[in-house]
Write a protein that binds this DNA or RNA. Structure first.
Lengths: 186, 186
DNA sequence: TACAATTATTCTACACCGTAGAATAATTGT
DNA sequence: ACAATTATTCTACGGTGTAGAATAATTGTA
């Protein structure tokens, strides 16, 4: 397993090209494929680099995970101006859940960062599509909190039971319809 | 820090009394006080015992955590026959949240065990009090899933942001009222 | 009573983990 | 020319769960 013994010191030329971006990309692909957050050592060795090289680009592991989280969260559904609110909500929730399911570890980082962090991305997109319903401020806040925590709880269940075939993103439908009905009748 | 160097082998007499129960009790109190799951070593040393002694009573750390979870979950509110459903629901949810907030690590163990495990305790107690509403089976299932995952998401947020004064169990009230209104109008 | 089996414990050690700090070598600035 | 900066590897520390062996007290049996 251990092999190389590469030359020490700064490598020559512009070759090989280690960078924050290739580290982030490799870390994301390992998270997707191994279904867990890689250790710094395994991340480094899959980049053919010493573990400590990672720390030249990131202060610590949390900073790396936060960087991944910030970049990935942008990919959730962006409601369009002409969207039907219910369709937009379904798309938003589905894309959010699929993201949190695809990258185990994302959820914990997301929640540890909170406070105008990347968790706000979902909140902002929810607030856009919910305008169509003209809820009171309180009702809107309550609806938002119920939904985000529900989705986090669902994502956590998906993470913990590692796809034991009992649990799928599909099972969002029932509770989400129940939730939408509640919104409509408010 | 390292001190004793106790005598090896089985200790004499019925004294000192290490047992599964004293291990469980100490582990629970460490979880409450340190606000995290103790390492086996720190648990052992706070019992003045070698780390490996723990493994005489539990196959591995997960088994210990599962045992803790199974015993603690019984302490959530038990709905009474004459309860008003809304009051009972509030008590049930509040006690569940307080439990998950008081013992960080419980939530993950709970979800990893699922499948007629201790997570069923909440489900059963919910099903008792919800009878008062005569919902259809689908509506009841959707309502249950929405609620449990919501509570898990809330508890996770509480765990992750370690009481940064932004988040408290009180904030259950708004979303829970919104949820109750949805149930009533169903 | 002798001694074998069982039980409860400690000790040692392994393979992981994140990461601090120093050594090293290439590039860049003066 | 040579000093400073930058990018990298190596070594090492203190932590984790836990396997395996050594040890000693108790219990069961002849």
């Amino acid at each position: 397993m251990i092999v190389k013994g590469k030359k020490r010191g700064r490598p020559s030329g512009k070759s090989s090209e280690l960078s924050a971006q290739v580290i982030l990309d490799k870390a994301k692909s390992l998270m997707r494929n191994e279904k867990k957050v890689p250790s710094i050592r395994s991340l480094a060795s899959s980049l053919n680099v010493d573990a400590m090289a990672i720390y030249h680009y990131f202060n610590n592991k949390d900073a790396l995970l936060e960087s991944i989280t910030t970049s990935l969260i942008e990919s959730i559904y962006q409601p369009q101006v002409n969207d039907d609110w219910k369709k937009a909500l379904t798309e938003l929730c589905t894309s959010y859940l699929i993201l949190l399911d695809s990258y185990p570890g994302l959820l914990n980082t997301l929640l540890s960062m909170e406070g105008t962090g990347p968790a706000q991305v979902f909140v902002e997109r929810f607030n856009i599509l919910i305008k169509a319903l003209n809820l009171s401020k309180e009702a809107q806040d309550n609806a938002l909190n119920l939904l985000v925590d529900y989705l986090h709880g669902f994502a956590l269940a998906l993470n913990c039971q590692g796809d034991e075939l009992l649990l799928h993103v599909d099972q969002l439908t029932g509770p989400l319809n129940f939730y939408c009905a509640a919104l409509e009748r408010n």
